[in-house]
Design a protein around this nucleic acid. Structure first.
Lengths: 148, 148
DNA sequence: TAAAATTAAATTGTACACAATATAATTTGA
DNA sequence: TCAAATTATATTGTGTACAATTTAATTTTA
């Protein structure tokens, strides 16, 4: 059979599998906060950069309004963020942390370290992996821009 | 703010983002075959190993019956696989390629190479990444086993 | 400046993921 | 041997992803 089609020779499958595996580790930690991993990513953005438009969040997380709108509505229902139309430009919706959402940052502070401990991956491998991923993402983005 | 919570310091987010990015590249290629990326993964398993039970596919792709059952039904509706209860053990369902499903292997033969070309990632980086991912997955699995 | 183009979110529809539970068949063990 | 435990798949329900379309507001430009 074609070597290229063997599961072990795929590059994307291990990325996809590892992604789901690590998100699974986050799940245990995040269910204490009653949020999902994509919701947690939105909070990382808000904790770091403050109030953002839906578009700004989408650019940072590479997610579109079809994903974000319902997700943000769920965070609003939980009382973690507020959503309000920009008065200067009625097309735009500003997403802000509520007090509850802001306080959650303290509770989340230890999560990344605990998840990495749970993974059993050495610090050295984590550092290498992070560097590798940045390089690969960089190559993809550079190539994509060149295509235009 | 807590350095650990900055988006740029996350390990999981770039994995998750890269996974979606590359699957997006596959999408263009796979829509010619009228299948999704997870459906393509199931076909990789069947092309490589022949008829499999739902469980065997699930172990190889780390997916459960909640994901696989409906996915396999969709592949059945498309005429790509057949599903039939094992006569020796009525709990088991065997998933086999139809003739159409088998023929599709030829059409898929060039996909991995084309997708990697489209990504703009150098061969060297791809090889390094693949090795890195295998190592990291190995560490995770070894650690998980040790936990029991 | 009014129509055309663009932009930002929202909506619709399909397809995963996955936890939790259900169902049915097979194995185990008292 | 038959009730209890286990196993394999299916079902249910929630929450992403993402393409395609819609809606409404703003900018551009003829």
């Amino acid at each position: 059979m074609n070597e290229q089609l063997k599961l072990d020779n795929q590059v994307c499958f291990p990325i996809y599998a590892l992604s789901r595996e690590i998100i699974g580790l986050y799940r245990t930690e995040l269910e204490v906060l009653d949020i999902t991993y994509p919701q947690y990513l939105v909070l990382l953005v808000l904790w770091e950069d403050g109030t953002q438009t839906v578009n700004q969040i989408g650019e940072k997380l590479k997610l579109d309004s079809g994903t974000l709108t319902p997700l943000l509505k769920r965070l609003e229902v939980k009382g973690i963020v507020s959503r309000c139309r920009c008065s200067a430009d009625e097309r735009v919706v500003h997403i802000a942390l509520t007090e509850k959402g802001a306080v959650m940052e303290q509770m989340a502070a230890g999560i990344p370290e605990r998840v990495m401990k749970m993974s059993g991956i050495s610090q050295e491998s984590l550092d290498q992996l992070k560097e590798m991923l940045a390089s690969v993402m960089g190559q993809m983005c550079a190539f994509r821009k060149k295509e235009l």
